[in-house]
Amino acid sequence: TTVHIGNVTYHFDNPEEAVKWAKEMAEKLGLRIEIHGDTIRVE
């Protein structure tokens, strides 16, 4: 599972961890997340 924040990509072996981490980052940055299969974007 990959999480994209701007130009930076993070890789997670556990999809649930990826979603949890992306949600925390989105809250901190005042952004929202979009999930497309195994790709998560924070925008």
Rank of each mutant, 00 (worst) to 15 (best):
T1F: 12
T1S: 08
T1Q: 04
T2G: 03
T2D: 07
T2N: 08
T2H: 12
T2K: 13
V3W: 00
V3C: 03
V3F: 01
V3K: 01
H4S: 09
H4E: 08
H4N: 06
I5H: 04
I5E: 01
I5K: 01
G6K: 06
G6F: 12
G6C: 07
G6H: 10
N7D: 11
N7A: 10
N7E: 10
N7W: 10
N7R: 11
V8C: 14
V8Q: 13
V8Y: 14
T9W: 09
T9S: 12
T9D: 08
T9K: 13
T9A: 13
T9E: 14
Y10P: 00
Y10K: 11
Y10L: 11
Y10M: 09
Y10I: 14
Y10D: 01
H11Y: 15
H11N: 06
H11A: 05
F12D: 00
F12I: 02
D13C: 12
D13H: 08
D13I: 08
N14K: 07
N14V: 07
N14G: 05
P15T: 12
P15K: 14
P15D: 06
P15H: 15
P15N: 11
P15F: 15
P15R: 15
P15E: 10
P15M: 15
P15A: 14
E16W: 10
E16S: 10
E16Q: 11
E16D: 12
E17F: 09
E17Y: 08
E17I: 08
A18F: 04
A18E: 00
A18P: 00
A18N: 00
V19L: 15
V19A: 08
V19T: 07
V19N: 05
V19D: 03
V19C: 05
V19F: 14
K20G: 04
K20P: 01
K20V: 07
K20L: 10
K20M: 10
K20Q: 12
W21A: 02
W21Y: 06
W21P: 00
W21C: 04
W21F: 14
W21T: 01
A22L: 04
A22G: 03
A22W: 02
A22Q: 00
K23D: 04
K23R: 11
K23S: 10
K23G: 05
K23L: 13
K23M: 13
K23W: 09
E24D: 10
E24F: 15
E24Q: 12
E24R: 10
M25V: 12
M25L: 12
M25G: 00
M25N: 03
A26F: 05
A26K: 03
A26Y: 03
A26H: 02
E27F: 06
E27V: 05
E27K: 09
E27G: 05
E27C: 07
E27H: 06
E27D: 13
K28D: 05
K28M: 12
K28I: 13
K28S: 10
L29K: 05
L29V: 04
L29M: 10
L29Y: 14
G30N: 11
G30F: 04
G30L: 04
G30A: 04
G30E: 05
G30R: 05
G30C: 09
G30Q: 08
G30D: 07
G30M: 04
G30P: 02
L31S: 13
L31T: 12
L31I: 06
R32N: 14
R32G: 13
R32I: 15
R32M: 15
I33R: 00
I33A: 05
I33T: 04
E34S: 15
E34G: 07
E34A: 14
E34L: 12
E34K: 14
E34N: 14
E34R: 15
E34C: 14
I35P: 02
I35F: 10
H36Y: 13
H36K: 12
H36G: 04
H36N: 12
G37E: 06
G37A: 06
G37S: 05
G37P: 04
G37M: 05
G37N: 06
G37W: 04
D38K: 11
D38Y: 02
D38S: 13
D38F: 03
T39P: 02
T39H: 13
T39K: 08
T39S: 11
T39N: 08
T39R: 07
T39A: 08
I40W: 00
I40V: 05
I40D: 01
I40T: 02
R41P: 02
R41G: 03
R41A: 05
V42L: 15
V42Q: 02
V42I: 14
V42R: 02
V42Y: 02
V42K: 01
E43N: 12
E43T: 15
